[in-house]
Amino acid sequence: MSRRAEQLLEIADDELILGWRDSEWTGIAPTLEEDVAFSSIAQNEIGHARALYELASRDLGTTADALAFDRSPEEYRSAPLVELRRLDWARTIARHWLYETADELRLSELKSSDDAELAGLAAKMDREEVYHRMHAQMWADRLRGDERFEAALDELWPYALGVLAPEQRPAFADRVGREQVDAVERGEHSDELRELWNEMTMVRRSIPGATW
């Protein structure tokens, strides 16, 4: 697999899995306004994943749906941060804020890539991510100092570092005002991903070869 395809799949898998996690708040978020907001964010992330998979699928001779659903859990390249099932608001916001901050650094590098397709898609994604960052920042400011939120940041920080390549981590640590620690790297998947995968692919696997 080309480095380009690998890179596309890493980001696509992050966005897909996070989108899946975010959509778990549907119907049960702390307020109805946040329920609607998180659903929009989930839709954006999945839309980004689809666009990235489409780009990768041309290199790999497959389809976006096949990449999203038909690989085994071990083949996903998602960062452990997005795989965690953390259905409480303090951790959800901590992950949201850390991820969006990391994603901004990742996208800004992609936007200046020599690969025009990749740079164009990154710019397009960034236009939506701006709103996610504003939303994440608003909540981070609001929860700053709350012990649940601070504990969640401590817990998730090593995972968040694993979203980025090592050379981008110092800037990330600077941006969020934290010391670098040992990152939880991509490659090893949690049981939480396997559970999510089981659920996510359940209908699709139930009747092989069907069109849905």
Partner: peptide, 17 residues
Amino acid sequence: LRAPTLQRKLALTAKVQ
């Protein structure tokens, strides 16, 4: 969480939203 394609996932999420 079980929608079988990306398009269905997006449509169902938007519908429930």
